[in-house]
Design a protein around this nucleic acid. Structure first.
Length: 566
RNA sequence: UGGGGCGUCGCCAAGUCGGCAAGGCACGGGACUUUGGAUCCCGCAUCGCAGGUUCGAGUCCUGCCGCCCCAGCCA
């Protein structure tokens, strides 16, 4: 399924400060009136909803302004990066609906170029080889409030630096024994400008360049140069890189090459979830979830398995906006986005989650009939289906109350309700077991009400979903809920693990569904009427053992009203 | 007086040259309804604080207050 119908149009996109900058640049004729962005993940983990914000922003901006967006892996640290992550990232970006065409790049593609530009820096007298140890560099760097001291190696001659740097590349020195540093200003208030390291010696096989290199460039140097090489015009990144912008600009200025504009925006935070790679890893490694793609995870793969279609995530990213203020988006907005995105396209089906048998006394014992049901009231185009009805059916246990509160307009003794697409029934009796638990109820139906309306046009308040006992098919529903019990698990003063919702997953294998569900293929979005949106698990679903993941419940006004009494 | 940012409704977020506070989510009310779903109406802020400039300031100036980021040979 690839429905884009309820995507917002680019031209209606909300305005934000980045669009304002781009529009001004376009008006000024800057960059030859081109817009070229990039999404630059480090292949050291799985993508999550926060990355989706960046992906939608970068690819969305390129699309809206007739430009291009590259996919570039920032793979400059082989000790953390792996091919597995490259593969999952590509899959996720594609799945989200974006295409980088032939522009799949890697910072490692530029290692040779990066190296020669580093030599150029040395030749310019703007970089030097430093023999200080990591600890010493830290000491020399000074503190937030005190300036640093210059390295004793800072004034080596250009010739010596060049020779040393070449020998670093040649593998003449052990790991960590030397680094190449930019020569800027050890007294800068910005620590990033205190002679930052730009190359380190690291004998580590790289997932793409294998053992070609024993020195690797640092982010600050590699990123701006990569942007420059690719002709990026607007380099978008998150707020924590604001301090790095002077360095970004410094390198490109010294090198005298194409100079993209770095623009920072606030990263996404979502209530009731965590988005830091480290915490997400903890959840996986300590078994709180079953993997990176567990439907409770805010990862792209988790959301996909949960049943969030790609357009629902784009929809969400459109709604949250882009700004510079730190903020926490209410997860209710994500839930709203997926409901809205699924409402118009999800096939409706009746599934009883907690079956309660109903015997329709006056319905002939052997009779069966098929009633017509609408597949989606929001879209008549997709037609109708037949639903079997007979004397014994199941309704939702929660739809019957022996002693109902005033506003309860579902079934209770003596009350009449409508069985969706079927008949009106009135409750005539209740059977209980020895413990007092209701095991069956009896009703009478009105033959005149076939299909759900009567000649006398009388109103019934409640409409219940139901399934024919004889024809129903069992299925398992994975009832997922928020992973955390508090809005900001990361801001609590005790460990975030203490706030994991013990009921974030409940497995319900007592569900009974109408026969139509047998036609479902893995990866299908359905709405279980009056219950929620469900997704046929793409990995574990089979016709023998149908498993559905609850994506999100329907809005439940009754729960709100009845909950108020508590 | 380290440096860099941010502060508009419960949560996000628009607010061009200062001219008289968009929208969404959430929430409350109502209409409609064979999903107490959807849809549709209605309601819901004086802009961190204090001064100043001005006929007029969220938008300009001054001074406070609060929050976030930075001391990886991570990105």
């Amino acid at each position: 399924m690839n429905n884009d119908s309820n995507d917002r149009k680019g031209k209606n996109a909300r305005s934000n400060f980045i669009r304002a900058i781009i529009e001004k640049d376009l008006a000024d004729g800057k960059n030859n009136k081109n817009v070229h962005t990039r999404f630059p993940p480090e292949p050291n983990g799985y993508l999550h909803i926060g990355h989706a914000k960046s992906i939608c922003l970068n690819f969305g901006l390129a699309k809206d302004y007739g430009g291009k967006c590259n996919l570039r892996f920032d793979d400059t640290n082989p000790s953390k990066e792996e091919q597995e992550y490259v593969d999952s990232i590509k899959e996720d970006v594609h799945w989200l609906g974006y295409d980088w065409e032939d522009r799949e790049f890697y910072a490692s593609d530029y290692f040779e170029r990066l190296y020669s530009l580093a030599e150029k820096l040395v030749e310019l007298g703007k970089a030097y080889v430093c023999d200080l140890s990591a600890e010493q560099i830290r000491e020399y760097r000074g503190t937030l409030k005190e300036p640093g001291r210059e390295s004793p190696y800072r004034n080596r001659s250009i010739e010596e630096n060049l020779d040393l740097f070449r020998r670093m590349r040649a593998g003449e020195f052990p790991d960590g024994s030397k680094v190449l540093r930019a020569k800027i200003d050890m007294a800068s208030g910005n620590l990033n400008m205190r002679d930052p390291v730009i190359y380190r010696i690291m004998r580590k096989s790289h997932h793409r360049t294998k053992d070609d290199w024993c020195i690797y460039p640092m982010y600050d140097f590699a990123h701006c140069v990569s942007d420059s090489i690719e002709g990026i015009t607007h380099s978008l990144c998150t707020l924590e890189f604001e301090d790095h912008r002077p360095l970004y600009d410094w390198f490109l200025e010294q090198l005298d090459v194409h100079h993209p504009q770095q623009i920072e925006f606030a990263r996404l935070n979502l209530s009731y979830t965590v988005l830091s790679k480290r915490k997400l890893l903890t959840l996986v490694e300590e078994g709180f979830v079953q993997g990176w793609n567990d439907p409770r995870m805010p990862t792209i793969s988790g959301l996909r398995k949960r049943g969030y279609p790609p357009w629902s995530i784009r929809n969400f990213c459109d709604r949250i906006g882009v700004a510079k203020a730190d903020s926490v988006v209410d997860v209710a907005l994500l839930e709203h986005a997926v409901r809205e995105s699924l409402n118009k396209v999800a096939q409706r089906v009746m599934v009883v989650m907690d079956p309660l048998k109903v015997v329709v006394e006056n319905y002939p014992k052997e009779k069966e009939e098929e009633l017509e049901a609408i597949n989606n009231p929001e879209d008549p185009e997709i037609g109708t289906r037949k639903v079997p009805f007979c004397r014994e059916i199941y309704i939702e246990r929660s739809d019957f109350l022996e002693d109902p509160p005033s506003k309860f307009f579902r079934l209770s003794p003596g009350k009449e309700v409508r069985l969706r697409y079927a008949y009106y029934i009135t409750c005539t009796g209740v059977k209980k077991d020895d413990s007092g638990r209701i095991i069956e109820i009896t009703c009478r139906y009105d033959p005149e009400s076939r299909g759900g309306t009567t000649p006398d046009k009388r109103k019934v308040k409640g409409t219940l979903h139901w399934v024919s006992a004889k024809h129903s098919v069992p299925l398992t529903a994975m009832l997922y809920d928020r992973l955390f019990t508090v809005p900001s698990p990361e801001k609590e003063n005790s460990d975030f693990r203490n706030f994991i919702n013990p009921e974030s997953l409940r497995v319900n294998n007592k569900c009974m569904a109408e026969p139509f569900v047998k036609n479902t293929a893995p990866g299908t979005f359905l709405q279980f009427e009056r219950v929620g949106y469900f997704f046929a698990d793409p990995d574990n679903y089979s016709h023998e053992k149908p498993i559905f993941n609850r994506t999100v419940t329907l809005r439940d006004t009754w729960a709100r009203i009845s909950g108020r009494g508590k």
